[in-house]
Lab assay of single mutants.
Amino acid sequence: SDPSEDRAPESARVGNIPSSTSALKVPQLKVAESAQGPAAAHTTDTAGYNAMEESVSREKPELTASTERVNKRMSMVVSGLTPEEFMLVYKFARKHHITLTNLITEETTHVVMKTDAEFVCERTLKYFLGIAGGKWVVSYFWVTQSIKERKMLNEHDFEVRGDVVNGRNHQGPKRARESQDRKIFRGLEICCYGPFTNMPTDQLEWMVQLCGASVVKELSSFTLGTGVHPIVVVQPDAWTEDNGFHAIGQMCEAPVVTREWVLDSVALYQCQELDTYLIPQIPHSHY
């Protein structure tokens, strides 16, 4: 159930021909089969995070001529859309010479989310990475209204306002976009420790780096000194050995919190207090 199309920051360009055919990675995205229709094609874990990302398996898109002007500035990904909605975005992107990729990268400028009429969405990996990267996180209605009015409308009017977990109007995407000089995790050293489900560890690490944190791979690698705040992030329900995560405190002095601390902080683009996310640790033995 991992969102495989989000696994690594590679891009698939639509609308320009790469210098070599080997560089072309066409979105071959799968549809989750469901008797209840597209709305039930998501699996949500206890964290309220949509693990099964969206989309559609299609034939290789038709490439435009390399001489045609390509908008190098805009690059989009989509999240939560049905196959039909994805194809509408594809046509919109081609019309406006926008790069459409299946994986979010540093070059991505827009994340197009499936939302309700009030621009509230589910939480997906692309949603988190879009906010963390200060990108435009907009409703699919931006595409449909632009098509209806036959011009590209202003993104401000379609920015995602909230999500089904953290609140319907928290304005996290807007706050992140306007606060890239004040990253929420700066001054923190974060170790993403142990197993994680539904989200590859490297993507979680990239997320906290985008928010200004330094990533530490091992508990023994924390910088011990003033001005640096170490934090260990774990996902308790992913551990097979009972309560192993309670013993992390015996290996390092850092506070240990659940992954929800990261996800909530990123969604709201406000660093949350650790208290409600802390995992009790077995104290050091004193002999």
Rank of each mutant, 00 (worst) to 15 (best):
K91L: 04
E62T: 11
C121L: 00
S221C: 14
E53G: 09
F158Q: 00
K25V: 12
I184A: 04
E189G: 05
Y193V: 15
M76F: 11
R150F: 10
R73G: 12
D116S: 02
P27A: 13
C192R: 01
I184P: 12
Q145N: 02
I282L: 11
M76K: 01
E218Q: 14
G130R: 00
F222T: 15
S20P: 05
G15D: 06
V14F: 06
V164Q: 11
L29V: 12
Q281P: 04
I231M: 08
C192L: 03
Q209R: 01
I282Y: 05
Q270F: 09
T258R: 07
N102H: 14
I184L: 14
E178M: 11
L88M: 08
V215P: 15
L103I: 04
L81F: 07
N16Y: 10
L100F: 07
S75H: 12
S79G: 03
I98L: 13
R186A: 09
P173D: 00
Q281W: 15
A254F: 15
S285Q: 08
M207E: 02
V143H: 00
K135W: 03
M152Q: 08
K174R: 12
G80E: 01
T197M: 12
S179K: 00
A32R: 06
M74L: 06
N198R: 13
S57R: 07
V112F: 00
H284V: 07
I104P: 02
G194L: 02
G167A: 02
D163K: 01
S22P: 05
A40L: 11
K25G: 07
P255Q: 04
G212L: 02
P83W: 03
A176Y: 01
K30T: 12
G48D: 04
F119P: 01
D45S: 03
Q270R: 11
V160A: 04
V215M: 05
E33Y: 10
G134F: 04
L81E: 01
G15S: 08
G130V: 01
V165Y: 13
A8V: 03
L81T: 02
R168L: 11
W136V: 05
V266G: 01
T82A: 09
T82G: 07
S4K: 07
F196Q: 10
N169S: 04
C252L: 07
L81V: 14
N243T: 15
D6T: 12
T46R: 11
P195R: 12
L188P: 00
H42P: 12
W239G: 09
N50A: 10
I248Q: 13
P200Q: 08
N198W: 05
T43D: 14
C191A: 13
G162Y: 00
P61T: 12
R168A: 07
N198T: 15
G187R: 11
L219S: 14
G249W: 11
D157T: 08
Y140C: 10
H286A: 14
F158P: 00
S265L: 02
P3C: 03
V256D: 03
D237T: 11
H229W: 15
K151Y: 11
L263R: 01
E149A: 06
T197W: 06
F92Y: 13
L125I: 03
E178G: 07
D275N: 03
P38L: 04
F185S: 01
E107N: 01
V120H: 04
